[in-house]
Structures are given as structure tokens and as C-alpha cells.
Computed example of a mutant assay.
Amino acid sequence: MTGPIDSDSLARAPKVLLHDHLDGGLRPATVAEIAAEIGHTLPVPDVAELGEWFRRSADSGSLERYLETFVHTVAVMQRHEDLVRVAREAAIDLAADGVVYAEIRYAPEQHLEGGLSLDEVVAAVQQGLAEGEKEAASAGTPIRTGQLVTAMRHAARSREIAELAERHRDNGVVGFDIAGAEAGFPPSRHLDAFGYLHEANLHVTIHAGEAFGLPSIWEAVQVCGTDRLGHGVRIMDDIEVIGGKDEYGRPAAKLGRLAGWVRDKRIPLELCPTSNVQTGAASSIAEHPIGLLKDLRFRVTVNTDNRLMSGTSMTQEMTGLVQQGGWTLEDLRWVTINALKSAFIPFDERLALIEGVVKPGYARLGAG
């Protein structure tokens, strides 16, 4: 399909999501209901206004106001039953959006104020995801989910969180992540954790190349041995666009040594277009580097990051790329298969989803 893509096709297209934060994807009504139960004061009382407050705050250009949004979502994710509910609703909402596989990340160390242990947090999230998977299957929208257990890069618990991930790898955890402010907190501060994870043969993704540039990406790739790059949009700092086309019809560009390595090694980029625009990593969806990186055949994937704060979904991310970036259904199929190739579940499970779900799904829409 090379012509216009209608909204129904975009909604029905199978989707794969590798970068989605559990504490960034709550339903506004859930935030309001739990906050009322626990006595947490929200910035606005009305549910409809609350959702808009989250979006305005994330889009305000103020880092302080952006971070404040997570104060409220994390506050309502401290009890066992609340973690179960939030995780269950995440799986259901993603499945209803056409997502067939999702890796959902969160930092267990941020959910201990209600007296839960780290292991109890992971178990509660897994219970919710399993319940959500079951409900989604009953609704005719099956989804497979996995947890990415995240350590905060400004804290000193990364080895502990790595061991937590290993303990739960047979109970829903598919990998490990570090997140938080990049500047001043390089991933190399956590080499003990990464060494442990590599010895345990556990998959790793690292937030790098979002707010900070090439040094963050280089350390994540060459020092810490990451399997994927969370965002990685600043790899563009190592690419010089010459103009015109090369002999393969792709944009003519000169890749620096790091960009060339990332492309050659097929290191996946977990790009989040709407979020990247909000944080200033890109000026607009139309100008987002994802289009050029796709054309240069980096292993590009499309993600939501924080669905509540960005007011987005996978369908909306794809719609923006089609309407503002000129993407085709074949482009969307390609990045979806990229994402499954890059997923942290076993190869046979990835292949089954590619061959049994994604390819047939896009074929029904006229692609592939």
C-alpha cells in the first residue's frame, strides 16, 4: 500500500512496543481514584482536567514541571493492589490499541513507600500484567507482555536491581534498564550491575542519547555492552547529511565511527517521537530524525515512552509519522518487525509473532 493510509488501517495495524514506562501510562481516572483513597493531593480535581494537566505539564518546557507529573503517578503506585491495577490496565489499554507485544519498564525502588519489598513490587506488577493479558485475550485482542526492571542512574542500587531482575527472569522479567538524568550520571557508574547481568546472560537496555549526546551513547554501547539504546536519538550528532541520494536511493550521508558501529551492529534504537519533541530532542514529528535513520537503515523502532504525559498511543505515534513524516504502511511494517527482532523474549517466540501475527496482520491491510 503506497497511497493514503486511513485511520482504521492504522488502528488495526499490529504494533510492538519496547519503550513504555508503567508510571507514565496511567489512566487519569485511576490516578484520581487512588489518590482520593490514600489522601494524596492532586494539582486539579477533575479527571478530564487532570489528563490535560499532565499533557500541559509535560509540554511546558519546564523540567521541574515535567518531573512533577511523575510525583503524582508514583504516589498512587505504592500499594500491592494499586500496582496490580495499574499493570492490568496498561496491558488492556495497549492491547486495545493493537499492541501485540509490549515491554513495560518501571523502577521498583520507587514503589517501596507502602512497605512492599522489591520482590513484592515485581510480583504485583506481574500479577497485573497477567490479569491484563487474560482480559485482553477474552476481548479478542491478545497481547504478550514482559517487564523491564529499571534502576535509577543517580542512585546506588543498580547491582541490587540487577539481582532482582535475575531472580524474576522466569516470572515475567525479560530485561534490565537504567533511567534518569544522563548528564553527570554516566552509565559506566553501574559497571558492577552490567557485569553481573552479562554473566547471567540477561538482556540490557540503557537510556542514552536522549538529553545527552554521543558520550552517553558510546559508554552505553562500548563500555556497558547494552543490547538496545533507550531513545538514542542523539546518534544524529555523528551523522553528516551530504544531500542528494546514494547509489541505493537512500539519503546521502557520512556516518561517524560511532554511528557506523551502531548501524553495523544492528543496535536497536528505541525512538519515541512525541516524547522526543516534548523534551527538545527533536523540533517536530516532521523533522524528527527517525525518518532519516529509517532511510539510512538503522534498526529503528517506534515507541510511546509515557502515554499519559505525552497524551499518546502507538496508533497516534504511527499516525503522526504517516501524516507528518510521509511514512507508508510498508515503513510501519518494517519498524514493527524491527521491534520484534529486537525484543528480549526467546527467538522462537519472536519468530512466532512475526510470522503468525505481524506479517499476516499487515498483509490484510495490503502491505508485505
Rank of each mutant, 00 (worst) to 15 (best):
V335Y: 03
P14F: 07
L321D: 07
I34K: 03
G24W: 00
T336Y: 09
A155E: 11
F347G: 12
L83K: 09
A162N: 04
P4S: 13
A48M: 12
S283L: 12
F212P: 00
L296F: 11
G225S: 01
L129C: 09
A130C: 03
E135P: 01
A282L: 11
G368D: 01
G180D: 05
R65T: 00
S7M: 08
A165W: 03
S9Y: 10
R234V: 03
M236T: 12
P4R: 14
E330M: 11
E182R: 00
Q147V: 14
A343P: 02
R169M: 09
E109Y: 14
E64S: 14
V31M: 10
T141L: 13
R79E: 11
H190F: 08
H168M: 07
H154C: 13
I34G: 03
F54Y: 15
L296W: 09
L18N: 04
G225H: 02
T301N: 03
D305R: 04
P251C: 12
A87V: 00
V149N: 09
V47H: 06
V31P: 03
H190R: 11
I38L: 04
G249A: 13
E199N: 08
D170P: 01
A208G: 08
A220G: 11
G225P: 00
D170Y: 04
R234T: 03
G356N: 13
R167L: 11
K359T: 08
T319W: 01
H203G: 07
H111I: 04
I239D: 05
V31Y: 05
I345M: 10
P142F: 09
Q323D: 00
I104P: 04
E160R: 05
D192P: 01
L42Q: 14
R234W: 01
L340D: 06
H203D: 11
